[in-house]
Amino acid sequence: MMIANWRQSWRLWSVRVSALGAVLATTAAAAPDALISAWQSLPEEIRYVVPEHVGRWITPVLFAASLAARILKQRE
C-alpha cells in the first residue's frame, strides 16, 4: 500500500538522503576506480584535512541521517 501523496515524496529529506546513499553505493560498486580518482583529484589541502578512513563511515552516517530526517519535523 502506498502512502498518501507518494508522488511528492521526493520533497522529504529522508528520501533525498537515501537517494544520495544509493547513488554513492551504486557508484562504489560499479566503478570503484571513479571514487578513487575523485579522491585523488581533490586538492592536497582537502585530502590532508579529511582522514582516508572516512569512507567506511559514509554509509552508517547516511543511514543515521535518513532516520533523523524521517523523524524530524520538516517545513511544508
Rank of each mutant, 00 (worst) to 15 (best):
M2P: 15
M2R: 10
M2W: 09
I3S: 07
I3R: 01
I3F: 06
N5G: 01
R7G: 11
R7P: 11
R7A: 13
Q8D: 13
Q8L: 09
S9D: 15
W10M: 05
R11M: 15
L12S: 03
W13I: 12
S14F: 04
V15K: 03
V15I: 15
V15M: 13
V15Y: 07
R16M: 10
V17P: 01
V17T: 08
V17H: 00
V17A: 02
S18M: 14
S18Q: 12
G21K: 08
A22E: 01
V23M: 08
A25W: 09
T26N: 06
T27Q: 08
A28K: 12
A29S: 10
A31V: 07
P32Y: 07
D33F: 12
D33Y: 08
A34P: 00
L35V: 05
L35A: 05
W39K: 01
W39V: 04
Q40F: 03
Q40P: 00
S41F: 08
P43H: 11
P43N: 04
E44V: 02
E44K: 07
E45Q: 08
I46C: 00
R47Y: 08
Y48V: 06
P51A: 14
P51Y: 15
V54I: 09
V54L: 11
G55R: 12
G55P: 06
G55A: 15
R56E: 12
W57Q: 04
T59Y: 05
V61H: 06
V61F: 05
L62N: 09
A64H: 00
A65I: 00
S66A: 11
S66K: 02
S66Y: 03
L67H: 02
L67M: 07
A69W: 01
R70L: 04
R70W: 10
I71D: 00
I71G: 00
L72V: 12
K73E: 10
K73I: 10
E76T: 06
